[in-house]
Design a protein around this nucleic acid. Structure first.
Length: 425
RNA sequence: GGAGAGUUGGCAGAGUGGUAAUGCAGCGGAUUGCUAAUCCGUCAUCGUGAAUAGCGAUGCACAGGUUCGAGUCCUGUACUCUCCGCCA
């Protein structure tokens, strides 16, 4: 959500920003609507003023005057009601457009139509070389008896997974490792629910954009959360936070649910794209200062790069172009880890600066110490680690000829010191 | 699932139908020679203004209703707390 005053004062900038994202909003119409609304406000406020004046005079009025004043006031009330109904109709139209207004992209974001125009900023590590033919992650799981993929889809439907023994432990161990790293960086670890009311979905910006992506349970009017970001973004909604509490850093863990409605036929094999997964999410609330939030954006990126480095996975840093970044975002980096059998990099992390766009939606503000004013915060989010997807590059890059999996040193303490799991016994 | 109590500004807390007290914190200003105190204003949103000036509207969990007038009365909903029941 943007500030209407900003839109009026920077009409061209706003139109350009929206165009860069490949979206369309009738800005001129929006501004005209805003002007109409203000006119209606002015008329109904004048009526309200007169009505208040009359009402307040009744107490001290004489018995003869009273019926007359009451009649006048009553008539004004009717008139006011009509004006207010007009106003709320126009306001509803205005709100609908505003809730769909995207954030403006950073001037530094590459301009492009879709994911083909994202820009590789750097590559870290070399694609893993093998002196044998590498197996893909599904074959590795089968060879080690670590999964029940066929049976579980029969029971639970497509895009579900069940993993067992050391691999099941590994999934949780990676989350623990990431949580510890985040805690060392000052994050507050928070395990959050996977169910949510509707309002947080608007706050995050999932709604009104992509209802298709979300599981909904009508009996309870409850949604399944696709990410802990949803919950963390609303955790402090409507608050005015004292500046000295900022920045607030959350490491949120939750099971995540996505319908994957737009991904028919994509990544149907294995662990890459499933309806339910686990994610440890990084979430930051900071001051309304672009230098400050850009600094945190870089910091979040750095932490997730360290995660991939600790997992000893080759990866690349992608700067996402304007057309691929989605409505809420100001600036976005994705991390992609090398997947040997697909001979390409696949997304593991997505790191975004949302600036004040979400904070306007959740009405999340802070009081600035320098001037005592109340301002909207900036919010940022990044994946800490998401499994089972991260297990795909993990298994494939660390596989040995016998099908065993090497455990990187940093992860060993979380795997009871084991250097390898699986392989032919 | 059943019964009861509650929800007022950033925080605390008064207010039983007639303009939302007061205190604390923050911000601004004034004043006083002493690690600070005192006084005044401001302190949530919006409209009208060049204005961070004035004036005005709105705001007491949310949504309705009664009334000339609602924090206050009525109805519904959400949430919190206590007790009972069920339960991993």
């Amino acid at each position: 959500m943007l500030d209407i005053k900003f839109i009026i004062e920077n009409q061209q900038l706003v139109e350009e920003g929206i165009a860069k994202k490949g979206l369309q909003v009738d800005i001129k119409g929006l501004i005209a609507l805003h002007k109409d609304i203000n006119k209606l406000k002015t008329t109904s406020q004048a009526l309200a003023e007169e009505k208040n004046r009359l009402s307040n005079s009744i107490k001290s009025a004489s018995a003869e005057e009273r019926p007359n004043i009451i009649a006048k006031s009553k008539a004004l009330g009717e008139e006011l009601k009509v004006e207010q109904e007009k106003l709320s109709l126009e306001q509803a139209k205005f709100d609908e457009i505003m809730w769909r207004m995207p954030n403006l992209p950073s001037p530094e974001s590459p301009i492009g139509k879709d994911d083909s125009e994202n820009v590789v900023r750097r590559k870290v590590g070399e694609p893993t070389k093998f002196d044998f033919t590498p197996r893909d992650h599904v074959e590795l799981m089968e060879l080690n008896g670590w999964s029940e993929m066929e049976r579980i889809t029969r029971v639970c439907g497509s895009r579900t997974y069940a993993i067992t023994n050391e691999l099941a432990r590994l999934e949780l161990a990676i989350h623990l490792m990431v949580m510890d790293k985040l805690a060392e960086n000052g994050f507050r670890i928070i395990n959050v629910p996977s169910i949510s009311k509707e309002k947080p979905l608007y706050g995050q910006g999932y709604l009104p954009f992509s209802r298709d992506e979300i599981y909904y349970m009508p009996e309870d009017d409850i949604y399944l959360s696709g990410t802990a970001e949803l919950i963390l973004n609303s955790l402090r909604a409507d608050e005015i936070i004292p500046e000295n509490e900022l920045p607030i850093l959350y490491a949120g863990f939750s099971p995540c649910f996505r319908r994957e409605a737009g991904a028919a036929g994509k990544d149907t094999r294995g662990l890459t794209r499933v309806h339910q997964f686990m994610k440890t999410e990084q979430f930051v609330i900071c001051k309304n200062d672009i230098n400050e939030s850009e600094k945190w954006h870089k910091k979040l990126l750095q932490i997730s790069e360290e995660v991939l480095q600790d997992l000893e996975l080759p990866y690349q840093v992608l700067e996402v172009c304007t057309g691929d970044m989605g409505a809420p975002k100001y600036r976005q980096y994705d991390l992609e880890a090398w997947v040997p059998t697909q001979n390409c990099y696949r997304e593991t992390h997505s790191c975004s600066n949302i600036t004040e766009w979400q904070a306007r939606r959740t009405n999340l503000r802070y009081r600035d110490n320098s001037d005592g004013k109340v301002k909207f915060v900036h919010t940022l989010n990044n994946t800490g680690i998401a499994t089972p997807r991260a297990l795909v590059p993990f298994l494939e890059n660390h596989q040995q000829a016998d099908g065993s999996i090497r455990i990187p040193e940093k992860l060993q303490p979380y795997m009871m010191g084991k250097k390898y799991i699986g392989g032919k016994k």
